[in-house]
Simulated assay, not measured.
Amino acid sequence: MINAQWITLEGVVKEGHKVASGMAKDSPYPQGTIEMQLPFFKALGLDLTDFFPGTLNVSIYPHYFTLKNPQYTFKQVKWNPDYPSEDFSFCECRVYFENLHYHALIYYPHPETKIGHFQDRYTVEILAPLIPKIEYGDQIILQVNLLEIALEK
């Protein structure tokens, strides 16, 4: 991206609610929310088929982010017939783990339209390709674009 302003943060991979991937035992979404949302995002112009169908949850404590100018924002996406429509934004990022880097996206279901499974303010949900050997507690390097998000402490 031209004129991108990238900043590098350290992060720690943490366990999420496991509904995005469908791995939660009590999830109302057996195939996972991401798998269910993929065709809706693709129809809106964002093809996520190269990404793992689940989120990588990363704590960037003591930082947290707010949206500035996301690469994509989709309003009122009705991805599940049993629940209200939701708004989603996606911001470009890069994940570095074990000397490899991965093009990724910050996945941001807007809390004001989301019905449950909220993250704490220091957790970033990331869509990325499958990253071999990554586990909870692993440290990663995350690069974010300050044209798309603002970081605060």
Rank of each mutant, 00 (worst) to 15 (best):
T73N: 11
F74S: 05
N145Q: 03
N145T: 06
L146V: 03
M36R: 11
H101E: 00
L147I: 06
D120L: 01
V12T: 15
I2V: 15
H17T: 13
A104N: 01
L46C: 15
T113W: 06
L142V: 00
I134V: 15
Q143G: 11
L105Y: 11
V12K: 13
F88E: 03
L56K: 00
K133S: 13
A4H: 12
H110M: 08
Y64C: 12
H110Y: 09
G137S: 11
P28Q: 07
D138T: 04
F51D: 12
G45A: 12
D82G: 10
P30C: 06
D82W: 01
F88P: 04
M1N: 09
K153V: 12
M1L: 08
K42G: 08
V144D: 01
A20E: 06
L147C: 11
D138N: 15
T49D: 10
M36D: 12
P53N: 08
G116W: 07
Y72Q: 10
K25Q: 14
E92Q: 12
E125Q: 04
Y29M: 01
I34N: 06
I149Y: 02
I134T: 04
E15R: 12
Q76H: 14
V77Q: 04
Q139H: 15
T8G: 13
Y122G: 14
L100K: 14
L56V: 01
T73S: 15
A4M: 10
P84S: 13
Y29P: 07
F118Q: 12
N69I: 04
R121T: 14
Q76Y: 10
F51G: 09
W79L: 01
N69Q: 12
Y29A: 08
Y72T: 05
Y61Q: 14
Y96C: 05
M36F: 02
H117D: 08
F118E: 11
G137P: 02
F40H: 11
K75V: 10
G11H: 00
Y96T: 13
H103M: 00
Q31P: 02
G54W: 00
D87S: 15
K18H: 13
Y107S: 07
Y64N: 09
T123A: 11
L56G: 03
Y108V: 03
G16M: 07
F88K: 01
A24D: 01
V95P: 00
K14P: 01
L9E: 07
H63Y: 13
P132Q: 14
H101W: 00
E15D: 13
E92Y: 09
N145L: 01
Y108W: 08
P111N: 06
Q143M: 13
F90M: 03
H117P: 03
L151Q: 05
E125A: 04
E148F: 05
F74N: 01
I140N: 04
L127F: 03
V19Q: 08
I149F: 04
T66R: 09
S89C: 14
G137F: 06
L146T: 08
L9Y: 06
K25C: 10
L48S: 05
K75Q: 14
R94N: 12
G11I: 00
R94V: 15
D120I: 04
K78Q: 14
T113C: 11
A150T: 12
L130S: 13
D120R: 05
S85Q: 11
Q37G: 07
K14T: 10
S59M: 03
E135V: 09
